[in-house]
Design a binder for these strands. Sequence first.
DNA 1: CTGTTAGCGCCTTCAC
DNA 2: GTGAAGGCGCTAACAG
Lengths: 339, 339
Amino acid sequence: MKRRPNGVSRPTIVDVADVANVSRQTVSRVLADHPRVAPATRLRVEAAIEDLGYRPNRMARALVTRTSLTFGFAAVDMRDLHFGDTCAGMQAEARKHGYYLVVTKLDFEDDRGVGTLETLLTLGVDGIAFFPSFMEDTEIELFASTSGCPVVMIGRGSKIPHVVSIALDETAAADLIVDHLVQSGKRRIGVLMNEMYPKIVHDRFVALGRAITSRTDGVEPPVEADYPQISHGRDAATTLLQRRPDLDAIVGFNDTMAMGALLACHDLGLRVPEDVAIVGYDGIPFGAITSPPLTTIVQDSIGMADAAFKALLSCVQDGTPVEGEVVLWRPELLIRGST
Amino acid sequence: MKRRPNGVSRPTIVDVADVANVSRQTVSRVLADHPRVAPATRLRVEAAIEDLGYRPNRMARALVTRTSLTFGFAAVDMRDLHFGDTCAGMQAEARKHGYYLVVTKLDFEDDRGVGTLETLLTLGVDGIAFFPSFMEDTEIELFASTSGCPVVMIGRGSKIPHVVSIALDETAAADLIVDHLVQSGKRRIGVLMNEMYPKIVHDRFVALGRAITSRTDGVEPPVEADYPQISHGRDAATTLLQRRPDLDAIVGFNDTMAMGALLACHDLGLRVPEDVAIVGYDGIPFGAITSPPLTTIVQDSIGMADAAFKALLSCVQDGTPVEGEVVLWRPELLIRGST
DNA sequence: CTGTTAGCGCCTTCAC
DNA sequence: GTGAAGGCGCTAACAG
């Protein structure tokens, strides 16, 4: 029972073996629920474990088994409810299957995020799910092919070798939004994006741009805020409305930015939806209580989380290397008062 | 370069040593920035590391050094913005000091949360910060005294041996709220709590109960919702207002529940704040855009996160065992339209 | 059914 | 300045 540099010592498997008068290996067998252990021996070992308050060291175990029963999860900001819901969904699913989730913030400073994923790997995770906010596809491919574990990307529908991509069908979502707006008589549609999730922003804007251009006189460049938050959305929408005072609809990158647009309209004395209609993405609960409540593309975060977990699990269990596959999720337009 | 059960192999320190034509030990020295390595050797090793894409295995390292440069963080729901902000704050602080945060959901099913913290320990963290939503003080003390690492509790001001407690000064917060309400002419104040964070709820309700009783005709039992969310707050507030239609103020456990109370008042045709004033806790951004905007007790989540991280770090660095200390944070009342 | 041997990837200690 | 031996806590593989 050696001591840690600071604090109390924790018993090891040897301590348990000594107390129970068996070998380490027998303790190991009891822990693994191995069948061929005499019932009496098993009881002795279990009693010793209980007495000592022994807990196996998962790092030592993982070193030998090359399996930590741990997956890594990385996103820029867990407080963003789409990320948060996905993370929570994966945690729940993981627990059901005896896995733990190691959650980490994805940092731009850290090699555009690759460094963060590498650290997850050095921590010994068996697989990784992440939102590729600022990572380049080529970097992701390189990472995945050298990672030695399954890698799932959520939020972008790029086909990348060795990576399972799970994403909203951005084209379908954009069509839903723009059809709805055009049917409501809107013709001059502006877009609010942000610099925090440039990769997802890119896909979303491309899809929206196509949909808008094909149904109206065309789309102009989006206004990009630094962060996808209420106050930044408000500023961005104000800028947009100054540039194009004739806009009759604004699509925000997410609900939070759309809420900012709501505020900007209030500021400028514009009625929503009569003067300007507003649409967001994600379907967060707060969107239901703004005035007017927000029309939004609902994302099935939990469903995507389940799919991500299952993709990781099946790769690990079958030993199948990841082929590179894109799973697109059907969007749903929740129409409320803002359109 | 052995293979993992699934996927590609990752190089080890031995592979680097072979390529650089040195011993394992020399590679280890280079990694540790040990001074006594010949410059030429160091360059060879660094080149080999680069070539192979080698990354040290932190589990193997931690096994030897008994230090993982990792702290654990646990809370019931990272989407709750007070928890989320605190977590983000600790992540930021950790990165500055070369530490990583392993974030985990605290589960009631898992021994009221003790099991979750134990798992963090088996994962090898050097210290733990957590929100004690449903854990008993005695369980926390037992855990902390056998954990072998520093333990910081956030959100409750209990004095527990071997645990640093960082918490809002609930008494001061309750006084701020009730003084403000009474000065606004309110006398019949109801309270909304929840069953998800019973321990924090307890402290908060005791403080509110004292403050209300001492300044009005008395307080009645709170209505407890299952979860601290908008819809649950709405239902709870409806129940409360049916039980006591004469209420002229409602204090919610947090901003989210208070928003539910806002909706309940709209439902019942009550004006806010004229008929019923509403106050929340936390100061989340969405509280600024409700109608009317929410009066709230602002919590300095980032400040508390910094304090928590620093407490852990100093314990680990000095090797000081934790004495058991309570750090109370001064609340701030942000008065907006709902009062 | 149980014990022994070997080694996971790395660092500490002690040689040279 | 560099290498060799030993061990962190644990399990796989093979004995018996």
